[in-house]
């Protein structure tokens, strides 16, 4: 029998052979990178902005008009960037449509994709409703508007919770597999939304719209004290959640304890404690407390603490996304 002609070339990567540095176990490979961090972060900002906006709107659409409208203007956009991040992170981005042709009820990502899609639609409607010439109608609070607001509130809660749940349901990754992750990320999302609003207010203090109504000193102070109050409360909760998160990991299984090592004496220690705890929580907390108790609203202080909070919000997601992938359940 004649032997066949040999066909083909060297398998794999053309003719260049890459010898990669050693990896003893496959745990510790980073599959989700900064694109996913951006996705989680921007989803948080959008959800938070929407959540704050609608909450403020429910409480007093007149008094908190600036917050309501700024939040509404912010909400639709970060999440679109986030979705772009998610799609770019897919290994087969052109297959993205498959996410939107299936609903897998057990898959947090599938549900999340749908929630985010709905959220985006609702946030756009809400955005339109809040455009200057429509805002008056909003204030009248017809049933339709109320329904949109309610839907928006539910969806923004969903999105804010989703990012954490996406991670926390994975028993494979002890760093993520705790209920404190959704808690932490939820609070952080609302804070980020708030920080976004606060920053926008500072950068564009006149806020647009019907100047006559909005330009008094009192209006500004109203909005700011709302922000500071919520900020203070949420930051306090966030601090609590971090403490519970750490104690929780530390007092749990062998896997969890070693997972904790990553932010206590391990690879992400500095980033977690300086980038998140100090910059993103402690400083904004101090600044907010100072403003709140002195009733002394300084724009620069506000802006700084909002920026730091946003940085902290990104950093904490980055740490969580990466650290989680480095940890593995002990198998045997």
């Amino acid at each position: 029998m004649e032997p066949p002609e040999a066909e083909g070339g060297f398998p794999g990567s053309g003719n260049t052979i890459v010898i990669k540095p050693s990896i003893r176990k496959r745990a510790g490979m980073i599959y989700w990178n900064y694109l996913i961090t951006i996705y989680l972060f921007s989803a948080g900002v959008s959800a938070g902005a929407m959540f704050i906006s609608i909450t403020a709107g429910f409480i007093n659409p007149v008094k908190y008009e600036r917050i309501v409208r700024t939040g509404a203007y912010i909400a639709p956009f970060p999440i679109m960037a986030g979705m772009a991040g998610l799609i770019l992170d897919l290994e087969r981005p052109w297959q993205f449509w498959r996410l939107m042709t299936t609903i897998e009820l057990k898959s947090v990502m599938s549900l999340g994709a749908w929630i985010i899609a709905l959220f985006t639609v609702v946030s756009i409607i809400y955005f339109i409703l809040n455009l200057p010439k429509n805002y008056l109608r909003l204030k009248t609070r017809g049933n339709v508007i109320k329904a949109v607001m309610l839907l928006g509130l539910i969806l923004s809660t969903g999105v804010a919770l989703y990012t954490g749940i996406l991670l926390s349901t994975l028993t494979a990754r002890p760093f993520w597999n705790t209920p404190m992750i959704p808690m932490l990320l939820f609070i952080s999302a609302i804070l980020d939304g708030l920080a976004g609003i606060s920053l926008a207010l500072y950068l564009k203090p006149s806020g647009g719209g019907e100047r006559a109504v909005l330009e008094t000193e009192e209006e500004i102070n109203n909005n700011k004290s709302f922000i500071n109050t919520v900020d203070f409360a949420l930051l306090f909760l966030l601090i609590l959640s971090v403490v519970v998160f750490i104690i929780g990991l530390g007092g749990s299984t062998e896997s969890a304890v070693s997972a904790l090592g990553i932010i206590v004496g391990g690879k992400y220690t500095a980033l977690f404690w300086f980038g998140f705890v100090a910059l993103g929580v402690a400083i904004p907390f101090a600044a907010t407390a100072y403003e709140l108790f002195n009733q002394n609203h300084r724009a620069w202080l506000n802006a700084m603490s909002a920026s730091f909070a946003l940085i902290g919000g990104y950093v904490v997601r980055s740490v969580i996304v990466n650290a989680g992938q480095l940890t593995q359940a002990v198998l045997y």
Binding site: I19, K20, S22, R24
Partner: peptide
């Protein structure tokens, strides 16, 4: 042999 050298690297 790339497949084998890769194992050397992978398993340190």
């Amino acid at each position: 042999t790339p497949y084998l050298m890769q194992l050397s690297a992978h398993y340190n």
